[in-house]
């Protein structure tokens, strides 16, 4: 008998049922926050040096800014690949799967990876944009607090009886995956019908576009000459 439904169930469980109480919601949220910790300081890294010696060579601030946004996206790709390879390797080594089963599993994985990538890009851009306005030393605590708020809100969304509009980014990462897994298993879950893979991708793209534009506006308004090394 194929192990695949069981694995899909496991994946589904991993993405959904494991969020059933506040503590596990917080743990899952913090797990993803840890993936972005090395990248929350991209904008401000070597900032005084870069402002003086790189930016005057770039001629335009926008060029520097969009390079940073691109780097954030690249870093998120690396995080997703590392995370996904690790979790997939654990799965494959713990179960004996045929190539066709792995192919089916990869479809689910790709779904999750794309959403995880978008979530990580969003979170990194959010913290990096904030870092343009506040002290660098505040970024880490703010990231932790935001993660906890997201986790608590995720729990609220899960126990709510009627879900219409959800803005929680973690929900937009996990719920469509659960829909995918449920569809694969032939299970119908009416509670989360509103969440489709496409709608969540669009939601993240809008969120990311807003953050990129907001960061650009803030960066353009900075008096770079007055920024001191922290």
């Amino acid at each position: 008998m194929s192990d695949l439904p069981e694995i899909i169930r496991f994946r589904s469980f991993y993405s959904w049922e494991s969020l059933n109480d506040i503590y596990s919601s917080i743990i899952r949220t913090m797990e993803f926050f840890l993936l972005i910790v090395p990248g929350i300081n991209f904008y401000k890294k070597d900032f005084p040096t870069i402002v003086t010696y790189c930016m005057t060579r770039n001629r335009r601030r926008s060029k520097w800014y969009f390079k940073k946004v691109f780097t954030v996206a690249c870093f998120s790709v690396v995080s997703v690949v590392v995370y996904s390879c690790t979790s997939l390797a654990v799965l494959i080594f713990s179960k004996t799967l045929s190539i066709s089963q792995v192919t089916d599993l990869i479809r689910i994985e790709l779904c999750m990876n794309l959403l995880l990538f978008l979530y990580l890009v969003f979170f990194q851009l959010y913290l990096n944009t904030l870092s343009l306005l506040i002290k660098q030393s505040w970024i880490l605590p703010i990231g932790v607090i935001t993660s906890i708020i997201i986790a608590l809100d995720l729990y609220r969304v899960q126990i709510a009886e009627n879900i219409k509009i959800v803005l929680n980014p973690m929900a937009h990462m996990f719920f469509p995956l659960h829909v995918e897994c449920s569809g694969f298993l032939g299970v119908d879950d009416p509670v989360i019908h509103n969440f489709t893979f496409i709608s969540s991708v669009i939601y993240f793209l809008i969120l990311i576009a807003v953050l990129v534009l907001l960061g650009y506006k803030i960066f353009q308004s900075l008096d770079l000459g007055l920024i001191k090394e922290e």
Partner: peptide
């Protein structure tokens, strides 16, 4: 003030930090 620097400039200013 926002988005343009001199075309060809060499700078040595205040901050002497490189990598």
């Amino acid at each position: 003030t926002g988005d343009s620097y001199p075309v060809s400039v060499g700078v040595m200013i205040e901050n002497n930090n490189l990598w």
